[in-house]
Design a protein around this nucleic acid. Structure first.
Lengths: 241, 241
DNA sequence: ATCTCATCTTTACGATGTAAAGATAAGGAG
DNA sequence: CTCCTTATCTTTACATCGTAAAGATGAGAT
């Protein structure tokens, strides 16, 4: 039998007295302040997603396993299956949460600013800032191959991210994006902006920009490098063509 | 308990006294006049790397396991360990091969062209073309977290890739990159070019540019979109600043 | 011819994803 | 109230993986 697993779980099963383990208990949820850990959790789905985010940011993508999440939430290793089907399901739902956080961060960054130039910079800066603040989440959203975009929650959240980008580009070019068709110039502008900020973020998170950063004047940060990139891009683009 | 493994394998090969020779033998071509041991794999290391590339492009990153590679090469599942230490070792050596192929592809694409504008386009187009032709390899090089850049072969191959990019940017700006220091403008130009082509490639391989491509005029290919991006970028950049 | 050692195979173990069967509590029907 | 149904959670089981360690094997040195 699995030694650690069984030991932990059987101990917990026999009517848990109060505290389980250093594993922090969510202790939230609509189950009120009555029971600590009943057989039926009450809000296990939410608890599992929060546990998953904790595991992800603590142990990285490789540490995000079904069993680790179950362990973190204090339930048996097969409990997540009932709520998410399989690992792809859990990971996809978590990625959807990530996209929503991500979209919210960029939206609030754009709202906090008025001038067009500022707004042109605020959005990509918020993009990179989110990725730096939540590297595990960003890796989950853009690096994992185990995402199921046919899930409505994930599809919608990712789509919304794309729509936000397209609208921002359209506003910057003062020619709002029409519903279903794009000119080659519009498509190129969108793809260029997205490619650049996404590529920059991936290279930065992978440490591949270190070679550049350490050759720049002392103390130059990644954010300053990004700003230099963005300014040259914005400045170099003729508004008419 | 893990007795299934044992039972399975011992049952599968209930061994007669001798006859330990597996069936399929790659039988490498005549490499040199030295060791042609057709019996015991004289070049298992090379055979494993070739098997690994085959497995990678056939089954994707998730299918690239030590045991699958050993199976593909027709040896026992523990044989790769002796040559590469662990999975990280095998994967890193394979990624080094990928970087060399990648560098060679870009170099030959640049050499086949003379005008400065053509050269500015040839390199990124070769970049994306390689990734499309070898998506597994590109994912291995830029998506896997399981790479050990302290390995000299991988470090050198990846460094050479960066150097090629930096030189191309320097030549394009007509101010060759000095050895150890960069101005903020130079660093931004390099990071921008790399970020854009890398981001474009990742998004393209992940299918995330489909939303854009299908809204463009019918029949527009990813390559045409890339070209539109590059041309607007090159055109928008003043040569003096 | 025997020894030594690099190479390859067996065996073993813990971890993971997943399927299936068992246990348990919550809520409704009588 | 008791009994039953059902969703939820636990146990058990198994194939696969990475990796370690011990056993086999053949090539080259002594």
């Amino acid at each position: 039998m699995g030694k650690t697993d069984t030991r932990n779980e059987t101990a917990r099963l026999s009517r848990p007295p109060k505290k389980t383990l250093p594993a922090s208990r969510p202790a939230r949820g609509p189950a009120s302040a009555k029971t600590e850990t009943p057989y039926h959790h009450g809000a296990l789905r939410e608890a599992l997603l929060q546990a998953a985010e904790r595991v992800l940011e603590r142990d990285g993508l490789a540490g995000l396993t079904l069993r680790a999440v179950a362990r973190e939430a204090g339930v048996s290793h097969a409990a997540p299956t009932h709520h998410f089907g399989d690992l792809t399901g859990l990971v996809s739902e978590l990625a959807a949460i990530g996209f929503r956080q991500f979209n919210a961060a960029m939206a609030s960054a754009c709202d906090a600013v008025t001038s067009p130039l500022e707004r042109a910079l605020a959005r990509p800066k918020a993009y990179v800032a989110y990725a730096q603040a939540h590297p595990g989440m960003y890796g989950l959203m853009f690096r994992t191959e185990r995402l199921d975009y046919s899930r409505p929650s994930l599809h919608e959240a990712a789509e919304s991210s794309f729509a936000g980008l397209a609208n921002a580009i359209g506003a910057m070019r003062q020619e709002p994006i029409s519903g279903n068709t794009l000119t080659i110039e519009q498509g190129a502008a969108i793809a260029r902006a997205w490619s650049m900020v996404h590529g920059f973020t991936m290279l930065l998170l992978d440490g591949r920009l270190e070679d550049i950063l350490e050759r720049l004047p002392d103390g130059t940060t990644a954010e300053q490098l990004l700003e230099a990139i963005l300014k040259s891009t914005v400045a170099g683009k003729p508004p008419s063509t």
